[in-house]
Design a protein around this nucleic acid. Structure first.
Lengths: 187, 187
DNA sequence: CGAAAATACGAGTTAGAGCTCGTGTTTCTC
DNA sequence: GAGAAACACGAGCTCTAACTCGTATTTTCG
């Protein structure tokens, strides 16, 4: 079942959600279409499970990477470095992530499937922002968090598509973007 | 034929590329499926023609809005205002635009169809950037332009989805993002 | 006006996707 | 070791979307 999700993630990374057929996922997982549907009710359910697995992995990543550091008191550029670094690694290692997360116009069914993932991330970022800038109005915090997430979402496909020096340069650009945007608010 | 493209754009705005059927487009245009295929070879061809129409409209928009002003010498924040304003208007008026332009993982066929649109925009932004900062290395200019376009692409769906005060606030955020990113480079 | 060319039509074809279900195979229990 | 329960199988069902093609209609022009 983990195996199925892993294969589905690979296929998603290559072709996108609509282009991947359930029969293809089954074949690549080495099982029959019938067996696939004993683990998942339908295609959307696969995406949903995958989104949850990604959410869990991101949560793990967070605790592993930032357990010691006191994020709210870190200088902004170090904070940004500490967050974007593992995030880029995660996106490189999980190509399917952006297929579920980075699309602005998912089919309505999928919107529901990935909503928890979005909500979890938004919650984390809002918490971090309000810890750093306690005076901010809640709606400003939420809007700032939404925009910051959106900026990362937008840059990640570029970063993943590039490699070598160009990728490193684009990671630098992502950090510059975040710094330029967040510095006036929570700097 | 313009009629078909207009209808197709509306349908795209509502449902996205894959979800819109050619028969639906034909029906909404008041013609039969057979007639549709006398104007366009296939579904991709419709998207291609629509992308070209958008490219032309954007070119018009540009000349109309900035004909008098001397963009390279304007202060950066005024430049950003002058560009983002009409761009937001355009996106609000043409909901189908983002369905073709803002998606990171278009099907390969569509990638070709919208490539000219991307190229045209990239060309315009690179020209503007190098006019403002003549000393920059070409690859830096191109990377900066790519990132700037990507930032606008990312923010536009948020802006279009919001309305009233929230939309205005998000436009402000877009401008803040662009300013924060571009100021160190071409400020 | 009438014939021919061009255009419009829409039911039908084809292909592929999601999904099912009767059958075969393995695994459990006594 | 035998019966039962759970699981796995994959050919095939169904539905939908892109696209076609023989026919009907309109337009063009001598």
């Amino acid at each position: 079942m983990e195996q199925i999700l892993t294969v589905a993630a690979e296929a998603l990374a290559e072709s996108g959600y609509e282009a991947v057929s359930t029969n293809t996922i089954a074949a690549r997982a080495g099982i029959s279409p019938g067996s696939l549907y004993q683990f998942f009710a339908n295609k959307e359910d696969i995406a949903h499970a995958l989104a949850e697995r990604y959410a869990a992995q991101l949560a793990e990543l967070r605790t592993a990477a930032f357990d010691g550091a006191d994020l709210p008191t870190l200088p902004l550029d170090q904070l940004i470095d500490a967050i974007t670094g593992p995030l880029v690694e995660f996106n490189l290692a999980n190509g399917g992530f952006k297929a579920l997360f980075a699309r602005p116009d998912l089919p309505p069914s999928l919107t529901d499937a990935v909503a928890p993932l979005h909500a979890a991330l938004l919650g984390r970022v809002t918490a971090l922002l309000s810890a750093r800038a306690p005076g901010l109005a809640p709606e400003v915090v939420e809007r700032t968090a939404t925009v910051a997430i959106q900026l990362v979402r937008a840059m990640m496909p570029l970063i993943v598509a590039a490699d070598g020096a160009e990728r490193a340069a684009l990671v630098g650009e992502l950090r510059a973007v975040l710094h330029g945007y967040l510095e006036p608010v929570v700097g």
